[in-house]
Design a protein around this nucleic acid. Structure first.
Length: 501
RNA sequence: GGCGCCGUAGCCAAGUGGUAAGGCAGAGGUUUGCAAAACCUCCAUUCACCGGUUCGAAUCCGGUCGGCGCCUCCA
């Protein structure tokens, strides 16, 4: 294992070294479940999914924990607006989140802890901080004292003076009065009588935003995590505060490596709910194969911003996403190549070492090349370039097997299969059934363009008769008429199939 | 104001000292009754701009211009 990762803590690329060499303990900040997952959540999940898959494909055991924040002010607010119990709303969006992430070909975390199931752990941690002099109660709230932790700011590379200056003028007056230092943050928030709350030594209330991640990660992975990840926007204050409260409590490093993924942007601006320029994953699933969305997320390095382009009609409505179109064509290429390989008739597969082509070494090395790309700070774009090389080599083999009296060496065929296995293992691509994916993509496009598959099949039969009668003019007329509607016909010895442009 | 990131072909995008990966689009070709798919070939003497360091820089240093993020809920 020679994975090197950019560590936010040091600002440098470093070898990833779990405390237990063959077992990585990883924690990633999950969603606050008050709405559907948007593309930013999708990107974050896909990045860490590739990390976990890559580590496992490289032979490491990984315990992957990703929380669900199901107790939070935003949830209470949204639930109140809808007249729905907060727990019901949270449960609904938790289910939706899990479903969406699975559709994006992400593995489930090994543990998915929820705030609602960890009150004791959270309260214990707060009590430990109060006892240690790192936190203080004030009017039913409990605050962490940043001045009690000299290293505060080490992750986001800022100091308390800077924070004070930056925060001036936009602080909540009520909280400021209770805080000893403006940067102190709430560990526990007292609840008003009409607000939901849970019992604690400091009165009825609910956890602050940051404490749950410290409590739950340490509960499931121990006091020092090998890697803690999340979106770039979590560096400050969320992760900075997690470090402070965790290390103040335990006296040991909270996480060895901190990893942060870049944003999804629209028109060069961060996509976020507050800007109103976001798309949920579900919105896109109706228009594109979820795996195409995953593919697109892999085309850019995880730390770089990922800019989303769209096309608009005159009325300003979104008409398309060129990048997802392109990614979906690449997904078709991937599955189309897989299907081609498996469609080679058995009699054309021969045990003839001499026939093994120059492509075989390239395919045999596919796994190593993927690993090398991802070992370098999870360079997914380069990994995708390696995938492209594999697909080209496999198609070359298939072309050879398709020629008159063409054959493919069993060794080549097996190397190609192994390459697809490696692609799935490291990147989570190509794990579905080719026929099903390709038909789904085709039918989704047909539906969008008002093309009836049944009718297309009839036209194909019509053309078949014309061709049999050597009436090529009539046959071509059918082809042209369908082509005008985006339907593309593919003739092959086995018959005619079709796809949507 | 503080901290930080980015600017590579028509578009997207890798590349942190050794002479520009990959994809899309485009051009030509093989194949095909015609197509499509697939495959082959071509497509940046150059990396926003100006200086500097070096035998050598897209890569390091300084400056200029342009874009963005965090500092407040946020993946």
């Amino acid at each position: 294992m020679a994975l090197r990762l950019h560590n936010t803590l040091s600002g440098k690329k470093e070898p990833f070294t779990p405390r237990e060499p063959e077992h990585a303990r990883i924690y990633v900040c999950g969603p606050t479940v008050y709405d559907y997952a948007h593309l930013g959540h999708a990107r974050s999940n896909i990045v860490y999914d590739v990390l976990v898959r890559h580590l496992r494909a490289s032979g490491m055991r990984v315990t992957f924990v990703r929380n669900v924040t199901d107790v939070d002010d935003k949830i209470l607010k949204r639930a109140a607006e809808r007249g729905e119990p907060p727990s019901a709303l949270a449960a609904r969006f938790t289910d939706a989140y899990q479903e969406d992430m699975r559709r994006l070909c992400n593995l489930d975390p090994d543990v998915e802890p929820k705030v609602s199931e960890h009150f004791d752990t959270i309260v214990d941690l707060i009590a430990r901080l109060v006892d240690g002099g790192h936190a203080y109660a004030a009017d039913g709230d409990v605050y962490f004292s940043v001045e009690s932790f000299p290293e505060y700011g080490k992750l986001s590379h800022r100091n308390l003076d800077q924070l004070e200056a930056g925060a001036s003028g936009r602080l909540d007056a009520g909280q400021t009065a209770r805080k000893r230092h403006p940067a102190d943050f709430a560990l526990w928030k007292g609840a008003a009588d009409d607000e939901p709350g849970w019992p604690s030594p400091w009165g009825r209330g609910r956890p602050g935003w940051h404490i749950e991640c410290s409590a739950m990660s340490m509960a499931h992975l121990g006091e020092t995590l090998d890697l803690h990840g999340g979106g770039l926007d979590l560096v400050f204050p969320h992760h900075e505060n997690e470090i402070a409260q965790s290390e103040a409590a335990t006296g040991v490093p909270f996480a060895t490596c901190w990893m942060h993924n870049g944003f999804v942007e629209v028109d060069k601006e961060k996509m976020s709910k507050s800007l109103g320029n976001f798309f949920t994953a579900r919105d896109l699933f109706d228009r594109f194969e979820p795996e195409a969305i995953r593919y697109f997320m892999l085309t850019v390095h995880y730390r770089a911003p990922l800019n989303l382009d769209w096309t608009l009609d005159d009325a300003g409505h979104v008409t398309g996403f060129p990048q997802f179109d392109e990614a979906e064509r690449r997904v078709e290429y991937l599955y189309g190549t897989m299907r081609r390989l498996e469609s080679i008739p058995p009699e054309r597969v021969v045990d003839d070492p001499a026939r093994a082509t120059a492509a075989q070494p390239e395919l045999a090395a596919a796994s190593d090349r993927l690993r090398a790309a991802l070992d370098d700070d999870l360079n997914m774009p380069v990994a995708l370039a390696r995938v492209g090389e594999v697909l080209r080599a496999v198609n070359e083999l298939c072309d050879g097997a398709a020629r008159k009296k063409g054959k493919i060496a069993r060794a080549d065929r097996d190397a190609a299969r192994a390459a697809f296995t490696a692609i799935g293992a490291h990147l989570g691509l190509g794990l579905d059934r080719p026929d099903e994916v390709l038909r789904r993509i085709r039918d989704r496009r047909a539906l969008a363009r008002g093309v009836d598959p049944q009718e297309v099949e009839e036209r194909i039969l019509e053309r078949k008769r014309a061709r049999a009668a050597r009436d090529f003019a009539a046959a071509d007329a059918v082809r042209d008429a369908l082509a005008a509607r985006g339907v593309e016909l593919h003739d092959s010895p086995a018959g005619t199939t079709w796809s949507m442009l």
